[in-house]
Design a protein around this nucleic acid. Structure first.
Lengths: 342, 342
DNA sequence: ATTATAAATACAAACGTTTGCACATTATAT
DNA sequence: ATATAATGTGCAAACGTTTGTATTTATAAT
């Protein structure tokens, strides 16, 4: 049986309240008693029951972490473990635990979050809000601190950390433009994922800045290259005489799929078409050609988000903020400058 | 403010105990009252405080999950997120939450586990016991269910799930032997990691079965190819006239490093040396050449482990067992049969 | 000595549940 | 009608802490 505070009290010949205070180094306890109590506690291998403690103090050293679709569905992509590393890094330093929401088939993300919030287990919530879905009505006066990674549709009066994805979208297409590309396709758009709508906005801005007419056909919504319909679409696009010479692709796995697909069409990367990608995964790094890819720094995303959340819980931050995490391009072999044609 | 059971009781005009029973569909409550209470509970958006509940019932729907070095250090390798997916998959179905141990610099793995166990938060523990370290004295009569992934040094009277790694070691070297290789190097051995000592045992068995003399120099302990000393060693080995024609390598990232290193020596994979690898990562899949690698099925490892743990907690399993998860080889391009020389 | 003040400790209530038991009501058997 | 059993509900204790207040003890001031 695990020792309780009462056991310690009895053996140290003091009351439970004294034990509690002694263990917390409350100045009202005499040196002598403090030492005696602490010795007994150690002898008995006493550790306070966190549940009981939380119950009365109304705090907990647990934060809930919610991945889209639960760990099961998200962990397949290296982005998520990387942010988890970041989260864990600061949680560990601050002696917090992370409670993972394990969404299942029978549970929508919203329900899973709600359950976490309602359980009373957690003192705050970290949402990987990949989905462009309404989480706003989700925490109704719960007064439970929430920070999101990836910005929500209604970014104001919420706490979140994110990259500046419209900047990233602009940056990548400008990178291509600078290398002489004019016919640039945007691959992987989905209105459901706000990252992609942001990056698309940046893409369109860059095009506009360079007075290039946007071809709406060329923002291709396929998320996975396997999708037959999209492949037909892509085939039509890439077999046309004025085919794109470059593509900005939303994700390394997608890019790898694309490269394979283009190869089946007889098109080589980067000789025939350049690809600039996102997420800088190991697979992309070792793919042939090695992908030029923007590192969105998921680790730092995690670090920053957890710091923010813990600061909110601690009361050090009280008004909705968002913080932007810088991205950076890893230049490798999938982009090639176009020979200047004149 | 969140509604408590007392609020529900007051409004439904019954006692808290009746509310509790009504909500749990206790047969001793009349239909009429049950409905009234449930309606009020819904109206008030009442959710029982899990802390309070756990406190009295002495159960919790949380299991602790401990990764070596905490999430921070382990999540970098795709193996771990994959087992987390497996764990989460069954935890979700059984409505359990996972509490991640977030080890930090100031906290050894042992301490982290102990803290998890002592906290009272968790009803069981899942240990990713990669390290060949003594966890046995760790849970002294705690009577807290523990299952480990990867088997501990003293495998008996513990619960664990694992691959049969000596079989895997034998299997991989036999795969090479069948393809005519006789000079086979074992890369990535470390006495600290029991996986590698098991696989090495299998490797030696296979060699012995084929009456091939073991060259102890050829089990190379480097864990990372970057290590200079080891690279010198490897260089000596691979520059010798009777150099290995094949290597069984303990991990895809290691194999990728090896391939690069060999290439710097002017040796190509698989033409000059074949490589059979472990862990079947995406990076290995897209590496050049694509790695022939054994998939240890981390997802299933996770699924199985969580099932076992939950069954123990539920009292359905009461005596130490271990279950073996099958591995399978993904054949790709890094192994080549030796031309039969006669 | 006596009282006022400070220091150290104990008491008891509270946190939000669950659950054994007692109690009250109603139905069943005699 | 009365005793007996079944049914439904409430009371109160318990889980293991923390914390405001009361109480005891020691110390200082008169």
């Amino acid at each position: 049986m695990k020792a309780t505070i009462k056991d310690v009290a009895r053996i140290a010949q003091v009351s439970p309240s004294t034990v509690s205070r002694a263990l917390h180094n409350n100045p009202r306890i005499s040196e002598e008693v403090r030492h005696r109590v602490q010795q007994v506690a150690k002898d008995l291998d006493f550790h306070p029951n966190q549940m009981a403690r939380s119950l009365v103090s109304r705090k907990t050293r647990i934060v809930g972490v919610m991945f889209p679709g639960g760990a099961v569905n998200s962990m397949g992509h290296p982005f998520y473990p990387a942010v988890l590393q970041g989260l864990g890094s600061v949680a560990g330093k601050r002696r917090y635990h992370m409670l993972l929401s394990t969404g299942s088939e029978n549970l929508s993300d919203e329900e899973a979050v709600r359950e976490l919030a309602d359980s009373g287990y957690v003192g705050g919530l970290l949402l990987l809000a990949a989905q462009n879905s309404p989480m706003e009505d989700l925490l109704p006066s719960q007064s439970l601190p929430v920070v999101e990674i990836g910005h929500p549709p209604d970014s104001d009066n919420r706490y979140y950390v994110d990259n500046d994805n419209v900047a990233a979208g602009r940056f990548t297409t400008e990178y291509l433009l600078e290398r002489g590309h004019r016919r640039i396709l945007f691959l992987g758009y989905s209105s459901r994922f706000i990252v992609t709508v942001d990056r698309r906005a940046g893409y369109e801005q860059a095009l506009k800045d360079h007075a290039i007419k946007l071809n709406p056909q060329w923002v291709v919504p396929s998320r996975f290259i396997e999708n037959t319909t999209d492949n037909e679409l892509l085939e039509r696009i890439f077999m046309a005489p004025d085919r794109p010479t470059a593509v900005v692709s939303m994700d390394d796995p997608l890019s790898i799929g694309l490269i394979g697909f283009l190869s089946s069409l007889g098109l080589r990367v980067p000789e025939d078409v350049s690809v600039i990608s996102f997420n800088n995964t190991p697979a992309g790094q070792y793919a042939a050609p090695a992908l030029t890819s923007v590192d969105v720094d998921p680790f730092l995303l995690g670090v920053t988000a957890m710091q923010l959340l813990l600061d909110i819980i601690k009361g050090k931050v009280t008004t909705p903020t968002h913080v932007e995490v810088p991205f950076r391009l890893m230049e490798r072999d999938s982009v090639m400058a176009l020979p200047s044609e004149l």
